[in-house]
Design a binder for these strands. Structure first.
Lengths: 131, 131
DNA sequence: CCGGATCCGGTAGGATACTG
DNA sequence: CAGTATCCTACCGGATCCGG
């Protein structure tokens, strides 16, 4: 079976591996935390860490840090540290991050337009199973 | 702080909770496994379990089963069991599932068009950190 | 005081073996 | 073939600590 390395990126990239590469990056980008951060930063522009934490909601500070680091590494956000006391760190989207946010736009719209059908489907499924 | 219940859906849904509901469903839909299954079924139409497993790749049968159950519950796929030996189960997208697949289209295109920039950004980030 | 690193307990998720 | 059951690891959340 053709194995796809989920997190490693080979040093030399063969042309035929591009599909796998795309596949892997999709896997990292299709994360709810990243979507939430994209959403919050798209809506509010520049945000501080704590503010972002409140806006996203239900995210541990540990995972928010980790998510933001990954997004910074991938070139989706910039992280600007102001050397003051108490610390002040500003996060904002890069053009690349903004474009990804835009790409997710249809997904948000799909949920807004279809959540009713999803809820209804779940009710039916659960009712059927409960018999 | 305003808490968002990640998995519970209240029996009576207040209008002001709709945002949270949309938020929750995004969280469940923004899963790489779901994206992979949507992609595979969009491309190949009806597929059996094992075939789907091969097409998605790097997914445990446990998680594939779980993902497919969730998608069935949410009304994204249909599951047709042929009562024969050996078992034969066909999965295919519902219209709702197809529409979600379409909503993710821009995200796939984003990755195809931007993965080079992401890789480059990672290289720079790692080089900077290594100093 | 804010941003985040660290340690620890619980749980999601992978590998394997088994069954209808 | 398409799952379930079992075990075990790795990751996540929460509490705590800390440097600036």
């Amino acid at each position: 079976m053709k194995t796809r390395t989920v997190r490693k990126v080979p040093a030399a990239i063969a042309t035929r591996d591009i599909d796998d590469l795309v596949f892997d990056i999709i896997g990292q980008v299709a994360d709810r935390r990243i979507m939430y951060v994209l959403e919050a930063l798209t809506e509010h522009g520049t945000m501080r860490f704590t503010r972002l934490s409140e806006a996203v909601g239900n995210i541990s500070q540990k995972m928010l840090t980790q998510t933001l680091r990954q997004m910074e590494r991938d070139g989706l956000v910039t992280r600007k540290v102001h050397p003051v006391i108490p610390p002040h760190v500003d996060y904002r989207l890069t053009p690349l991050g903004r474009s990804l946010g835009g790409a997710f736009c249809d997904v948000w719209k799909w949920v807004e337009g279809s959540y009713g059908r999803v809820i209804e489907s779940r009710r039916e499924f659960d009712a059927r199973r409960r018999v």
